[in-house]
Amino acid sequence: MTEANGSSLTPGYFILSGIPGLEAAHVWVSLPFCFMYIIAVTGNCGLIYLIGHEEALHRPMYYFLAMLSLTDISGCNTFVPSMLCIFWFNLKEINFNACLVQMFFIHMLTGMESGVLMLMALDRYVAICYPLRYSTILTNTVITKVGLATFIRNVLIMIPFTFLIKRLPYCRGNLIHHTYCDHMSVAKLSCGNIKINAIYGLIAAILIGGFDMFCIFMSYTMIIRAVVNLSSADARHKAFSTCTSHICAIVITYVPAFFNFFTHRFGEHTVPHHIHILIANLYLLLPPTLNPIIYGVKTKQIQEGVIKLFLGRKTA
Rank of each mutant, 00 (worst) to 15 (best):
M1E: 06
N5I: 01
S7Y: 04
S8C: 03
P11A: 06
S17Y: 12
I19Q: 01
I19K: 11
I19E: 00
A25S: 11
V27R: 12
L31E: 02
P32M: 06
C34A: 15
M36A: 14
V41M: 12
G46W: 10
E54G: 05
A56I: 11
M67P: 02
L68E: 08
D72M: 07
I73H: 05
V80D: 00
L84E: 05
W88A: 06
L91F: 12
K92L: 00
I94A: 01
F96M: 00
C99M: 05
L100Q: 10
V101P: 00
M103T: 01
F104T: 01
F105T: 03
I106N: 05
M112S: 13
S114A: 14
V116C: 03
R124G: 02
Y125S: 04
P131V: 10
I137G: 04
T139E: 03
L148S: 15
F161D: 00
L175Y: 14
L175I: 04
T179G: 05
D182Y: 12
D182S: 15
M184E: 04
S185N: 10
S185W: 08
C191Y: 07
A204M: 09
G209E: 06
G210V: 13
F214E: 01
F217L: 08
M218I: 09
T221S: 08
T221M: 08
A226I: 06
V228F: 04
R236F: 07
H246A: 05
I252G: 05
Y254P: 00
V255D: 06
F259R: 05
G267D: 03
T270I: 11
P272C: 11
L282C: 14
T289V: 05
N291M: 07
I302M: 07
E304H: 14
V306T: 07
V306Q: 11
G312I: 13
G312R: 15
G312A: 12
